[in-house]
Design a protein around this nucleic acid. Sequence first.
RNA 1: GCGCCUGUGGCGGAAUUGGCAGACGCGCCAGACUUAGGAUCUGGUGUCCCCGACGUGAAGGUUCAAGUCCUUUCAGGCGCACCA
Length: 803
Amino acid sequence: MVEYDFKKIEKKWQDKWDEANAFAAENGSDKKKFYALIEFPYPSGQGLHVGHPRSYTAMDIIARKRRMQGYNVLYPIGWDAFGLPAENYAIKNNVHPAVITAKNVANFKRQLKMLGFSFDWSREINTTDPKYYKWTQWIFIQLFKKGLAYKKEMPINWCTSCNVGLANEEVVNGVCERCGGEVIQKRQSQWMLKITEYAERLINDLDDIDFLEKIKTQQRNWIGRSEGAEVTFKLTTGDDMVVYTTRSDTLFGATYTVISPEHPLIEKLADTIENYDEVKAYQAAAARKSEFERTELAKEKTGVMLKGVKAVNPVTGTEIPVFVSDYVLVTYGTGAIMAVPAHDTRDWEFAKKFGLPIIEVVSGGKNVQEEAYTDVYKGTMVNSGFLTGMKVKDAIPAMIDYLEKEGLGKRKVNYKLRDWVFSRQRYWGEPIPIVHCDKCGYVPIPESELPLVLPDMEEFKPGENGESPLAHATEWINTKCPCCGGPAKRETDTMPQWAGSSWYFLRYTDAHNDKALASKEALDYWTPVDWYNGGMEHTTLHLLYSRFWHKFLYDIGVVPTKEPYQKRTSHGMILGENGEKMSKSRGNVINPDDVVNEVGADAFRMYEMFLGAFDQSTPWSQQGLKGCYKFIERVWNLQKIMTDEEGYSADIEKLAHKTIKKVGDDFERMKFNTAIAAMMSFVNEVSKKGSITKGEYMTLITLLNPVAPHMTEELWEMYGEGGLLSLRQWPEYDEAKTVDDEIEIVVQINGKIRDKAMVPAGLDREGLQKTALESEKIKALIEGKNVVKVIAVPGKLVNIVVK
RNA sequence: GCGCCUGUGGCGGAAUUGGCAGACGCGCCAGACUUAGGAUCUGGUGUCCCCGACGUGAAGGUUCAAGUCCUUUCAGGCGCACCA
């Protein structure tokens, strides 16, 4: 027998698969399709992280199994290659981002090939390829035409370190998601996408798709739907002030109102507000605060009362003060609230600080002078006119009905979700295909001129004062208006990295089409994606954005389904050996190149799947890795004890059928660790027995093939029936042969195990009871005691209750 | 603060509907082979006062029976975070 030489074997089969184009998906096939998807990587300079192959191997296993089950499988790969790191590198080293990107892609490709993934490389895509981003730009123009892309000057999140605007989703804990830099509010003219228009559908359609519940929950929370009412408060100046509230039941307890510092009413009332200077100063102070400070300072409420202006509570007729405070956000609701300190913690804190009256209108809690009572389930209305005596849940609609009847307010649904800030002041992104003409305004370039290619530049430094590097590309910027032919200027901001990834899965279905983003036939056949695995960190970013784009494309008739992904799962992180997050600074990074060099791709893949529960974070272990290598070698060495027998031997048959069932089921549930454990047990059994039939061996390597494709192909070539094992049929099991004829049952007395017995599998209650009571051990133990009850569970146990 | 998740041997982790806790792997111990072993193979390995008892973060509860269900609580992680 030859020694196990993974270096030789792995290279050999990777070449063979390439030559045979073994994993190419077929367009126009009659076969059932299966579309497996992983998040295409950003090709960073660091190369592959051990986290990437966790997801890729998992879906590779599913894809390979489906292929063996006769499906036409699409398992594609590409590069999400626009983005900041390449651009920053370019600025520092004065190399074109395209050059460094190409280099990084080549390195990633080498690494992915080395791991033996069954990707269809003929459909490889790259978001920075003009042939690709032509269609990203095309989608943008369609959004623009439908009024879903608009330019607006507004305060946005600005990363002071990257010098770039950020979407709401890109700000995490008040700092930049990418670099951790400080985020401030900056007024900037921005392209925005109206994702809020789709808020309702993005929530509702979650009901029809198979996403992990925690993913759905996170998206629902992020979109943040709330039902309430807009209520109009008259001001003593005669102006109207509209507030949003979900607790209209508490209107009788509203003792003041608050508007956000950015609220336009302040400017409008400038002449009436007696302390306008003080208000102005407060506005300025609020504007200077970063997101971080605003959340940090959340403990202590600040604000200024508008002197000379009062609001009138519409149900009590009482005049109440109007404050400006930054605990009210201009971006949510109407930017103004009615404050009910007795039943809202934030209002309570503010009222305490400013000595404002606290009036109880819901009873059932503690003294509202001591603490706000916010429970909406148990309380009863008091001091509330016509609402008094009602339960909160009845009082809310009753009040809204009243307000609507009296013309004082109306029902309103609000979302926390905000429109998507879509401009980036960067070079290395898709140019936004819009020109600005003084006469015609913003005009999309004709679709025939797509792609609008990035101009070649020498310098990639950002322009002055938050301008894009493209501001320096004078020749490129100046153009003609497609509408009137007059002079016009191109947009110099580019799209965010999330643009290209919002539709990439559609391109895979027909990757080389130059007439459309993909043909209708290809989209009809392949979409939706059947199973998409990716990281939790993209739940409110990529996953939400791409659902939005997909719904838009559905609305304009480009794609046939409402939702892009039928099923979404998520993997846990692989931590460093010390249990901490893997990072260069912690010095606990495991490099896939080293691992493959040491134990080979098969052992690496297996360990990635074996190290823990797929959906949980688990530390890496070099020892554990060796265990998997050892197992692979043990499988290889089974050759030594292999017999010529084709089928299963009598004593292994049941185990073989059970193993086939277990491995198949566990793969489907992404319980890869237990599937591998089952195969280990199988090997332990045949090793103990000292022989394995050829039939058993071939079944074993077929089950193992999705996990360790190279060495199983090699063994198949030596002992199998020819052809590629990767394209053979998945083994079948006989349900009848997975059940034992005789099973061991447990006999308990008062829940404690006292004896065990072998009984026929189908033995009924009476039989079990009889067996248990006839046992000598049991007889001795229950001697002289009163048997109260005997519980027999067929197939499991007998429990005798005695006194 | 709110929402979600996780707590099981020395370690990573198993345990479809409540029904033998600790599968499988690592580590450790012993033995075999060996000039040698950080290679390979075989056996053992939750804890203890080892007949037996105790054991799934803690405390209660439901049940003939609880890692699994309920209540309270502690610890860790993730998400959101003044969203009215």
